[in-house]
Design a protein around this nucleic acid. Structure first.
Length: 300
DNA sequence: TAATAACCTCGCAA
DNA sequence: ATTGCGAGGTTAT
């Protein structure tokens, strides 16, 4: 018996877009707009009901998870104000217009580090698959009603397996990176839990000291987990977007970052997310368009 | 400092 | 069905 809890939401919140925008990899869509994920040791089901957010969870009671979920969804960020501050930029504004309830998340630092190490030269479906396989193999089973999921294994658990095992789970050449990161976090060489709130310039070198963590992955961890909202991850998509839309063509990571800070300011990370998702969706739209026209006019 | 290859597999499109 | 290409980067040269 799991009685749902409903909390009033006074912020824009599009669960589907937010949980599916490439920041996180463990949420599954269920019929009727429900979303099922794992937060720490708990399985959580979320859905919007008008202006309220519905929550089911186990083993923790949903009433005891309100604070954690509020933090996870960054409902403490005043999104309309942030969006207003970014809306003078036409391309970001287009993203805001299309996805007004797209929010950044405040995720667990270890899980975020691990999953973005795995993101290198990969794609969302594959990252999701590998992360889920790691969880089902090395995590703890946990059930919400009759739905079973697994926790994401902590650094100690991951540090205890060997590289071959991680390769079997689909990590590929990222296996030694993930393993060493787990060892460093487990041993305390990297105090991940104490990085939140540390300035960007102090956090970056601590993260990039890890083998397999460059500036892009470090930015993802800082933006999606460590409250560094100025972090501006420059991946293929963003690089393409800033080159095409702003003429920013430098290949040097720091140049693009400096430009983003100059252009977008302290909430560059939100701008990044709107640009990223807008760029991705536009390419998806174009692919669908091309598919449609080639089907209707094969001679074209 | 800048360019280039190599890295594991998998997803996706032909 | 089977094949071939490129993928949310990082490191080594």
């Amino acid at each position: 018996m799991n009685t749902p809890v409903y909390i009033a939401i006074d912020q824009p919140l599009d669960l589907g877009t937010t949980l599916n925008s490439g920041q996180c990899f463990r949420w599954r869509s269920e019929p009727d707009g429900l979303w099922l994920g794992v937060l720490g040791p708990d399985v959580v089901r979320l859905w919007m009901y008008g202006d309220t957010l519905g929550i089911e969870s186990a083993p923790a009671a949903p009433g005891d998870m309100v604070e954690e979920i509020t933090a996870y969804l960054r409902l403490d960020d005043d999104l309309p104000t942030i969006q207003k501050g970014l809306s003078s930029d036409a391309h970001v504004n287009e993203g805001i217009r299309r996805y007004p309830g797209l929010r950044l998340l405040r995720q667990d630092p270890w899980e975020t580090l691990a999953t973005f190490i795995l993101s290198s030269v990969s794609n969302i479906p594959r990252i999701s698959r590998t992360v889920e396989l790691i969880a089902t193999t090395l995590g703890e089973p946990v059930a919400l009603d009759r739905t079973y999921r697994h926790t994401f294994p902590g650094p100690e658990r991951l540090a205890a397996v060997d590289e071959a095992e991680l390769r079997r789970l689909g990590c590929g050449f990222r296996a030694p990176y993930l393993l060493r990161a787990a060892q460093d976090v487990a041993s305390g060489a990297l105090r991940l839990g104490q990085l939140r709130g540390l300035p960007y310039a102090e956090t970056l070198p601590l993260l990039t000291a890890l083998h397999g963590v460059g500036e892009k992955v470090a930015d993802c961890v800082m933006l999606f987990a460590l409250d560094r909202m100025e972090a501006f991850p420059v991946d293929r998509w963003v690089q393409r977007a800033v080159a095409q839309w702003y003429g920013v063509r430098s290949r040097r990571y720091g140049d693009v970052r400096d430009w983003a800070w100059e252009h977008f300011g302290a909430h560059a990370g939100y701008a990044n997310q709107y640009l990223f998702w807008n760029a991705r969706q536009q390419r998806r739209d174009q692919a669908a368009e091309g598919d449609r026209s080639s089907r209707s006019d094969p001679e074209a």
